[in-house]
Simulated scan of single mutants.
Amino acid sequence: GKRWVWGRLVYVIATRLDSKQKSKQTDDDFLIIITAHEPQNALTDYRRRWGIETLFGALKTRGFCLESTHFIDKRRLSKLLALLAIAFVWAMKAGLWRHSQRPIRIIKAHGRRARSLFRYGFDLLRRFFTVSTQPLLGSGFHPIQFLSCT
């Protein structure tokens, strides 16, 4: 049922966090969500929203610097967002591949990896396109294949 929190009548939902990535997890690692609407969907909605937040973080300060374009034309911005979404998926797939070859072993105090899988792949793709590609191709890294379904 609803509870009063800071003068508002809301639902409070909590779940214990997954311990797969947490090396120092304690019994107090919870995700707490406060919502005024549909508590049965709150965790699913939050999970979906967190994926969007991760994408926007990569599009902005953690990778593509979208805000520095200063686009105001809706069509141009829409096309740019479509291209950046493809680039984001490309970087994630490259990061997943690289993590399978050379796992990110450093875990920070908060229990998460030192680098995100997106950043791991983004850095690999950037190096591929700015430095000589010969050493990377010899490692089995073929970035164009990440864009193919075959």
Score class of each variant (00 low, 15 high):
residue 68 S to C: 08
residue 104 I to R: 05
residue 105 R to W: 03
residue 149 C to G: 15
residue 99 H to F: 04
residue 72 I to L: 09
residue 90 W to R: 08
residue 89 V to N: 10
residue 80 L to E: 01
residue 117 L to A: 00
residue 85 A to K: 09
residue 70 H to F: 15
residue 2 K to N: 13
residue 119 R to Y: 07
residue 39 P to S: 01
residue 116 S to H: 09
residue 113 R to I: 08
residue 87 A to I: 09
residue 116 S to M: 03
residue 112 R to D: 02
residue 132 S to R: 06
residue 37 H to L: 13
residue 15 T to D: 05
residue 94 A to S: 01
residue 57 G to R: 11
residue 32 I to T: 07
residue 108 K to G: 01
residue 108 K to D: 06
residue 47 R to H: 10
residue 132 S to E: 05
residue 96 L to E: 11
residue 95 G to W: 11
residue 24 K to T: 01
residue 73 D to R: 14
residue 30 F to R: 05
residue 115 R to E: 11
residue 91 A to F: 01
residue 117 L to P: 09
residue 45 D to W: 06
residue 138 G to D: 09
residue 113 R to M: 12
residue 29 D to M: 02
residue 24 K to H: 12
residue 113 R to Q: 00
residue 68 S to R: 14
residue 35 T to I: 00
residue 134 Q to L: 14
residue 126 R to N: 15
residue 2 K to Y: 05
residue 1 G to K: 02
residue 3 R to M: 07
residue 144 I to T: 14
residue 98 R to D: 00
residue 38 E to Q: 03
residue 29 D to L: 05
residue 148 S to W: 14
residue 145 Q to G: 12
residue 135 P to A: 08
residue 15 T to F: 10
residue 85 A to M: 09
residue 90 W to Q: 09
residue 87 A to W: 07
residue 55 L to C: 01
residue 2 K to G: 11
residue 140 G to R: 07
residue 91 A to L: 07
residue 129 F to Q: 12
residue 56 F to C: 09
residue 108 K to Y: 02
residue 95 G to T: 00
residue 4 W to P: 06
residue 78 S to C: 14
residue 105 R to Q: 09
residue 96 L to Y: 08
residue 56 F to E: 06
residue 96 L to F: 12
residue 141 F to S: 08
residue 17 L to K: 13
residue 1 G to M: 05
residue 76 R to E: 00
residue 125 L to G: 04
residue 130 T to Y: 03
residue 59 L to K: 11
residue 67 E to R: 04
residue 136 L to A: 12
residue 123 D to A: 02
residue 87 A to E: 10
residue 122 F to N: 00
residue 73 D to Y: 06
residue 98 R to H: 12
residue 55 L to F: 05
residue 1 G to V: 10
residue 120 Y to T: 07
residue 37 H to Q: 14
residue 24 K to M: 12
residue 13 I to V: 13
residue 52 I to F: 09
residue 59 L to Y: 08
residue 103 P to V: 10
residue 111 G to T: 12
residue 102 R to E: 12
residue 116 S to E: 06
residue 46 Y to L: 03
residue 117 L to I: 06
residue 57 G to E: 00
residue 60 K to L: 02
residue 125 L to V: 02
residue 136 L to F: 01
residue 87 A to T: 13
residue 38 E to W: 04
residue 5 V to R: 06
residue 14 A to D: 13
residue 70 H to K: 15
residue 86 I to A: 15
residue 73 D to N: 15
residue 148 S to P: 06
residue 8 R to G: 05
residue 54 T to P: 02
residue 131 V to S: 15
residue 62 R to N: 13
residue 40 Q to F: 02
residue 91 A to V: 07
residue 98 R to V: 03
residue 128 F to W: 08
residue 147 L to C: 15
residue 143 P to V: 01
residue 13 I to T: 03
